[in-house]
Design a protein around this nucleic acid. Structure first.
Lengths: 273, 273
DNA sequence: GGAATAGTGTCTATAAGACATTATACT
DNA sequence: AGTATAATGTCTTATAGACACTATTCC
């Protein structure tokens, strides 16, 4: 075996001590122990000595177009499942991506141009059968973005397309992506019942009626108007920013709202059953 | 390049078509396309051509010992962090493990002997700095099991030990496991507010007072007796199975309960704020 | 009877559901 | 005036919280 000290990359050591952070015990432990056999272990470590599964990321990106839930799918350009519709996603780039979340954000931005969406991890699925290449794991993310018909970023990405959610279910999708989009949809519906999540698929400002219709679309259920308004206003998550008609332009002028500063923190607010 | 048909393992093809399942479109697509270039791609595919991150599983196993929350930790026998306390876990065995959940269950059973616990995925964490070996991903699971002082399986596993949760926080743990146990603890607390999850750390049968004390321990908060009993009984998740004194043996005899058949399905019940 | 714990009765406070009513815009 | 939509008033219903009270056990 080689001598330890002259072979460990400095960057690795720095990264390591960065993680260790404030745990002083470990600083000491690292200095005392690492430069003996632990160090040696790391020098000789190679990931390719192990039989590890594939790891990828997939993102269910939702938006609202004309009041209807849509999901972004891409037509796969490579094997396996070349030419088949699938969730956007792919592999981690160890150089570019700081962490899993950053990886998901990078892939989302590549497809949509959106840089500050709502992005959360839904579930990580791994088994022998989901990928023809063998044991494979994917970390499923869900993103919510507002739809902008003017800056048509998505249309410029030739392989990407918005599908009405129900239509997407009818497609034959790559891998287990049919299952994945149902999982993400279930999470979306669930959290809509007790958070203000749906706000992220709307462009600001919006009227309370628009917001309610969005909730109803995502919940697949009517909500009583008075109850909805009582709840959302008493939660103190919105601020009024003038008055206006949305687009149809009929009837009384409505108050316009946008999320206020509490909105980021208080994602969790209430339960609508 | 080699000819495709004589090189693809039959098992792979079977696993693949099993996944495809009822999607007939894909059966056809597979037959038409796979035996040309897709097939060729898979023949030449090797995971070692790619620079992929490490993937592991860690499990936060909770139980209740004398009314107090405990967590199972193991002393690491190998590098890195040899001799340091850590969550039980490890790598996927592509041969043994059907899927991620089965992998977590296997590792849990190895340490505790418990075969039917409550087991759920909490979150998957991946970044450059959490493991000295480089970019690494772990899928964090949480398990709840009842404690049995009689069959001392855990004590027989020499590297494993139950720690009172608060004490575990004081330890210096391997990798980012301090963070992981806090994440799992937060999930446990959260779900205790609106599910009957705590039932899984109790031995059956139990009294309502015991159950309430368990909720209070996991929520870190007093609950009003009448409210608790009203809720839990009206949810119809328990069945009465006789009467008895728990252990202290003082005061009036209490009704004993165990989970009924609804209990599996209706994990989600109510919200205690 | 006294201590300890199990279990109930009941009033109050809060918030959701139902639904009617008023308000404001355009034609 | 007529229509369409926004916003509110208010009664009912459901449930949680507070807390006093009764019930049953052992000594």
């Amino acid at each position: 075996m080689d001598k330890p000290c002259d072979r460990v990359p400095l960057t690795l050591l720095l990264a390591y001590s960065h993680y260790i952070g404030k745990h002083n015990f470990y600083r000491k432990w690292m200095i005392q122990t690492m430069y003996s056999s632990e160090q040696e272990y790391l020098n000789n470590y190679s990931i390719h000595h192990y039989d590890i599964p594939l790891l990828s990321i997939d993102i269910a990106i939702f938006t609202l177009i004309e009041g209807k839930l849509h999901i972004l799918l891409v037509e796969r350009g490579d094997y396996p499942f070349k030419g088949v519709w699938a969730l956007p996603g792919g592999f981690i780039d160890k150089q570019q991506d700081q962490d899993l979340h950053a990886c998901a954000l990078r892939k989302l931005t590549e497809k949509t141009g959106v840089t500050a969406p709502h992005l959360e991890q839904v579930e990580t699925i791994g088994n022998q059968t989901r990928d023809p290449r063998g044991w494979s794991v994917t970390s499923l993310y869900m993103a919510l973005i507002p739809y902008s018909p003017t800056s048509e970023f998505v249309e410029a990405v030739t392989d990407a397309r918005w599908w009405p959610y129900e239509q997407a279910l009818e497609l034959d999708l790559a891998f287990d992506h049919h299952q994945l989009i149902e999982t993400a949809r279930a999470r979306l519906k669930n959290k809509t019942a007790y958070t203000i999540l749906p706000i992220h698929v709307l462009n600001t400002p919006f009227t309370l009626t628009q917001l309610q219709q969005t909730f109803e679309e995502l919940l697949e259920k009517r909500i009583e108007k008075k109850s909805f308004r009582r709840r959302i206003l008493s939660a103190d998550l919105l601020e009024e920013v003038g008055q206006g008609l949305p687009e149809g332009g009929l009837g009384r002028i409505a108050a316009l709202y946008q999320p206020n500063s509490n909105c980021d923190k208080h994602t969790f607010v209430w339960s609508l059953t």
